[in-house]
C-alpha cells in the first residue's frame, strides 16, 4: 500500500465521525421515511384513499421523476450540510489532537515528510470525505426510493417506482459535481482550518473564527467598508450560483386551489442540464482561492515541520 493511502486510512481510523455522523443522519432520514410510509399506508387503509389518489392521478411520469429528484436532492443537500460541519471539525482537530496527546512524536518518528502528512489531511477533507458522503447518500437515497416507491405503488401509482433509477442517477451525478466544485471552492477555508489546527495551542475553534472577524471589524472601523465581509460571504455561499446555470425553466410550482392540490412541474431538462462549470472555471474567485489555499497549506506544513513544543 502506498504511504498516501496508508495515511488516509489512518485518518479514517482516527476520525470515525467522518463516516459515522453522515451514516447516523442517513439512518434517521430512512427511519422518518419509513414512519411516514407506514402512516400513509395506515391512512389509506383506515380512510380508503383520503384524496391522495386524486392528487396522484394528476401526475405523469415526468412529474413523478421531477418530484423524486427533488426529494433526493433535499437529502443530498442535508447530508452535505452535515458533511461540511464534520469536515470543519475534522480539519480543526487533525493536527491539534496529535500535539495535545503528544503522539506527534510517534508520527514524526516515521519516515514520512510533513508535506505528505498534512497533504493526506487536506486530501481527506477535499476528496475522501465527499466520496464517503456520496456513497452514503446513494445508499440512503436507494433505501428511501424503495420505501417511497412501494408506498406509492400501494397508494395507486407505480410512477415513482419506475422514475426512481433515472432520477437517482441524475441526482447522484449532479451531487458528485457539486461536491467537486464545492471542495475546490472551499480549499482556502480547508487550508486555513489546517493552519489553525497546526498552530493553535488551545481553543482551535476560536482561533479559526476570530481572525476573520477581527479583520472585518478592523476594516469597518478604519475604512468604513465591508469588502472583507463580502469576500467571506462569497467564499461561503458563492460557488453554487457560479457552478450551476440559473435556468428559469427549471421551476416547481405548487398550486393550491381550495381543496384541490395540483402539482405543476416544469423540470423539462433534468438536473444535469443545470451543471455549468464554465463560469466557475473562468471566475477569478476560484483561482484566487486556490492561491490562498496554497499559501495557507504551505504555512501549515511549515508550522508542523518546525514547531518546537518545548
Amino acid at each position: 500500500m502506498s504511504p498516501m493511502r496508508m495515511l488516509i486510512r489512518r485518518e479514517l481510523w482516527e476520525h470515525r465521525a467522518i463516516s459515522l455522523v453522515p451514516l447516523a443522519f442517513g439512518a434517521l432520514f430512512i427511519a422518518v421515511n419509513l414512519l411516514a410510509a407506514l402512516g400513509v399506508v395506515k391512512v389509506h387503509i383506515d380512510a380508503g384513499g383520503l384524496g391522495l389518489s386524486e392528487m396522484l392521478q394528476s401526475l405523469d411520469a415526468h412529474k413523478a421523476g421531477a418530484l423524486t429528484q427533488i426529494g433526493m436532492a433535499l437529502i443530498a443537500v442535508s447530508l452535505n450540510t452535515v458533511m461540511l460541519l464534520v469536515t470543519a471539525f475534522y480539519l480543526l482537530d487533525c493536527l491539534y489532537a496529535e500535539r495535545k496527546d503528544r503522539s506527534n512524536l510517534f508520527w514524526k518518528s516515521l519516515p514520512v515528510s510533513d508535506l505528505k502528512v498534512v497533504g493526506s489531511k487536506l486530501l481527506t477533507a477535499a476528496l475522501v470525505i465527499p466520496l464517503v458522503t456520496l456513497v452514503i447518500f446513494t445508499a440512503v437515497a436507494l433505501c428511501m426510493y424503495a420505501i417511497t416507491g412501494v408506498t406509492m405503488l400501494f397508494s395507486g401509482t407505480g410512477l415513482f417506482l419506475s422514475a426512481g433509477p433515472l432520477a437517482l442517477a441524475e441526482v447522484a451525478l449532479t451531487h458528485a459535481y457539486a461536491l467537486a466544485v464545492q471542495s475546490l471552492w472551499y480549499l482556502p477555508i480547508f487550508a486555513w482550518l489546517l493552519l489553525v489546527s497546526a498552530w493553535s495551542r488551545r481553543a482551535v475553534l476560536l482561533w479559526a473564527i476570530l481572525p476573520p472577524v477581527a479583520v472585518q471589524a478592523a476594516e469597518g472601523l478604519l475604512l468604513g467598508t465591508t469588502h472583507f465581509a463580502e469576500l467571506i460571504k462569497e467564499r461561503l455561499i458563492g460557488v453554487y450560483p457560479l457552478a450551476f446555470a440559473d435556468d428559469s425553466h427549471q421551476q416547481l410550482h405548487w398550486q393550491y386551489e381550495g381543496e384541490h392540490a395540483d402539482v405543476d412541474l416544469e423540470f423539462s431538462d433534468g438536473l444535469l442540464a443545470l451543471v455549468d462549470p464554465g463560469s466557475l472555471i473562468g471566475s477569478p474567485g476560484l483561482w484566487g482561492g486556490l492561491i490562498v489555499a496554497a499559501l495557507f497549506f504551505s504555512a501549515a506544513v511549515w508550522v508542523r515541520r518546525f514547531r518546537d513544543e518545548s
Binding site: 500500500m1 504511504p3 493511502r5 496508508m6 495515511l7 486510512r9 489512518r10 481510523w13 482516527e14 496529535e98 496527546d101 503528544r102 503522539s103 512524536l105 510517534f106 508520527w107 518518528s109 516515521l110 519516515p111 514520512v112
Partner: peptide, 26 residues
C-alpha cells in the same frame, strides 16, 4: 528510530492497526 517517551503512541489506535500502519509507512 526513536522512542521519545513511552506514553506517546496514539491512544485511539489498535495494536494490529499500529503494525499495519508502520508496515505501510516504514
Amino acid at each position: 528510530c526513536f522512542i521519545a517517551d513511552v506514553a506517546v503512541l496514539p491512544r485511539w489506535l489498535r495494536v494490529k492497526q499500529t503494525l499495519e500502519l508502520v508496515q505501510g509507512l516504514h
